[in-house]
Simulated scan of single mutants.
Amino acid sequence: MNTHTHVGVYGLAVWEQFYLLIQKARGPYYGKWDLPGGRMEFGESPETALKREFDEETGIIPLQWSIRSSQSVVVNWEYRGEPEEVHHIGILYDVIIGQNNNPLEQIKRNPDGEDSLGAAWFTLEQVKDLQLTPFAQYMMNLSQKER
C-alpha cells in the first residue's frame, strides 16, 4: 500500500448565522463538504496559503484569521486503482471576512477546476444533513458547542 502525508491549512468562515464550505472535487473526500483551504506551496507561510486557497476556492479573501487547532486523520482510499493511506494533517483557523458587501452573494458557486466543485453557505441546521470531511466536522462541532 502506498502511504502519503498531506499537510494543509483550512479555515471556518462564519457570516451572521451562515458557515462557508466547499464541496470536494477530488481525493479521498470527493463529494464531501470541507473547509476552504489546502496545501501550502513551497516556501509559502500558512497564512499566505490560507488567503490564497480561500480566494481560489470561494472568491473571498479573509481579513483576519486565528489558529484554532491542528488535527490529523488517516484516510484509506484508492488512487488510480491502487490502495493508498493518507495521513492528513490540518492547521485549522477561525476566519473573519470583510463586511463591506454581502458575502452570501459573492462566492464561487461553480467548480474551480482544481479541488472545489463550488462553495456554498449553510446554516448550522443545514450542515447537520451534509457529509463533511473530518476537519469540517471537527470545526462545526466546536461551533455548535459555542452556541
Rank of each mutant, 00 (worst) to 15 (best):
R39G: 04
I89W: 13
G59A: 09
G37V: 10
Q71P: 05
S72L: 06
M40P: 00
N100C: 04
V86T: 15
P62Q: 03
S69G: 04
Y93T: 06
S70G: 04
G43C: 10
S72H: 13
N101K: 01
L63E: 15
S45P: 06
G43L: 04
P62C: 09
G81F: 11
L63Y: 12
I96E: 14
I61L: 14
S72V: 01
E56Q: 07
K51M: 11
W65N: 11
F54G: 04
F54R: 02
G90Q: 14
A49H: 03
I97Q: 03
Q106F: 12
N102S: 09
P46E: 04
H88P: 01
I91E: 13
P62G: 09
E56T: 06
W65I: 04
I60Y: 04
L104Y: 03
I91G: 00
R39V: 09
G38I: 01
E41H: 10
G59R: 02
A49I: 03
Q106E: 15
V74W: 02
R80K: 13
P103N: 07
G43S: 10
V73Y: 09
W65F: 15
N100F: 13
I60Q: 08
N102L: 07
R39T: 03
G98L: 13
E41I: 02
I91M: 14
E105I: 06
P36T: 02
G38T: 03
P83G: 06
S72W: 06
I89R: 15
W33M: 04
W77K: 04
W77E: 09
E57C: 08
K51W: 05
V75M: 08
I61G: 03
V74A: 09
S70A: 07
I89Y: 15
W77M: 03
L92R: 02
D34T: 02
K108S: 14
G37P: 11
L104C: 07
P103G: 09
D55N: 12
I91N: 02
F54D: 03
Y79R: 04
F54S: 00
I96S: 13
S66D: 08
L50T: 01
G59Y: 02
I91W: 09
G98Y: 08
I97F: 10
F54T: 05
Q71F: 07
T48W: 01
Q64N: 13
I60F: 10
M40G: 12
V74K: 10
E57H: 06
I91K: 00
E57M: 02
R68N: 12
E78M: 08
F42Y: 07
E47A: 06
E82K: 08
Q99I: 12
R68F: 13
D34E: 13
L104V: 06
I89Q: 15
I89N: 15
